[in-house]
């Protein structure tokens, strides 16, 4: 008996075929559909500057969503991200009052983000606490510190060179934020899909015990993921603060839920173990386009939340309903 007759093939379906049947493809069609519908619904939609403005609806949230995607794939969650924005923004505002310049402000924002991420990470990995509870706690704690510092006041007076991070354009209608969003998306896509670290993230999300028994340093990976999420919150804080030009303790309230929605909409399993960065990118566009399109139609923001909420449940419910219907 030759050995060739039982050689196991690498794959049964080609990667292309798998991709075609994927969640991401479906989502892409949804995005295209919304784009087309919008351009029929409003004459103002297909305008380069309007579209460029629309990207600000999602770029800052998406930056955090990429890091959050990795965290959720690994089976953890961070609900404190919006509060990290508030604390980082408050720290930058305080730094402005002390006369710190733009480079110092950026370092402050990133530093506070990292410290907050490390704090979450230590609580989860060192003390072994469930991340959902820890980050509900730090969500109150971080924003609470902003309230203690600011009360009902606001920090203003950011230097013009700092404003560029939120208001500057790199070329024509392409904003700095959009370029940053694209670069960060690329970095995270490579990190998750093309590196050993990314593979470890999937392994941990599928079976953390099994990953540990395979020699993966599970707690270290988790800690790094919390650091990254904190860091990205710091980056988003810089962009958002620069864009708004002021800091109030209520800045970015409720963003954590929008970011989680974006990640889940992008096909990342809330139970961990699966998901892609491409999906999150498309989900970011879908959410941005819906918000923007409804805005052009003068539909108030709160009503859009119905659509986002329905999307979140619908995208998961519909395939299951379809499967149930087919099974009879």
């Amino acid at each position: 008996m030759s050995t060739t007759d039982r050689v196991i093939p690498d794959r049964l379906r080609s990667p292309f075929e798998q991709r075609l049947k994927s969640w991401e493809t479906l989502l892409l069609f949804v995005a295209i559909g919304i784009f087309v519908a919008n351009s029929f619904a409003s004459p103002y939609f297909l305008n380069a500057w309007n579209l460029s403005d629309a990207t600000f609806n999602f770029t800052e949230k998406a930056m955090i969503a990429f890091a959050m995607a990795l965290l959720i794939i690994s089976g953890e969650i961070d609900l404190s991200v919006a509060s990290i924005i508030a604390l980082a923004s408050t720290a930058m505002g305080a730094a402005v009052q002390m006369g710190v310049g733009t480079p110092g402000l950026v370092l402050t924002g990133l530093g506070v983000g990292l410290i907050c991420g490390a704090f979450n990470g230590v609580l989860v990995t060192r003390l072994g606490l469930p991340s959902i509870v820890v980050t509900i706690g730090t969500m109150s704690l971080f924003r609470g510190i902003s309230y203690i510092v600011l009360g009902d006041q606001a920090f203003r007076g950011y230097p013009a060179s700092f404003s560029w991070f939120g208001q500057g354009y790199v070329w024509w209608v392409i904003s700095f934020e959009f370029v940053l969003f694209a670069v960060i998306a690329l970095i995270y896509a490579v990190l998750l899909h093309k590196t050993n670290f990314g593979r470890a993230v999937y392994a941990i999300g599928n079976n953390a015990t099994g990953a540990m028994f395979s020699g993966i340093r599970v707690q270290r990976v988790r800690f790094i993921l919390f650091l990254l999420t904190g860091l990205m919150s710091g980056v988003a804080a810089i962009c958002l603060t620069a864009r708004l030009g002021s800091t109030r303790p209520s800045i970015a309230t409720g963003w954590e839920l929008e970011i989680v929605t974006m990640v889940v909409l992008g096909g990342v399993s809330i139970l961990g173990g699966s998901g892609t960065i491409v999906g999150v990118v498309i989900a970011a566009f879908v959410m941005g386009l819906v918000t923007f399109g409804l805005g052009l139609l003068n539909v108030p923001g709160i009503v859009m939340s119905i659509v986002i909420g329905a999307l979140l449940i619908g995208v998961i419910a519909l395939p299951r309903l379809w499967a149930m219907w087919r099974a009879g």
């Binding site: 392994a203 599928n206 079976n207 099994g210 990953a211 028994f213 395979s214 173990g273 699966s274």
Partner: peptide
């Protein structure tokens, strides 16, 4: 199932 292999990979 729990420690040896990662069943969903």
């Amino acid at each position: 199932g729990r420690q040896g292999a990662i069943l969903d990979l």
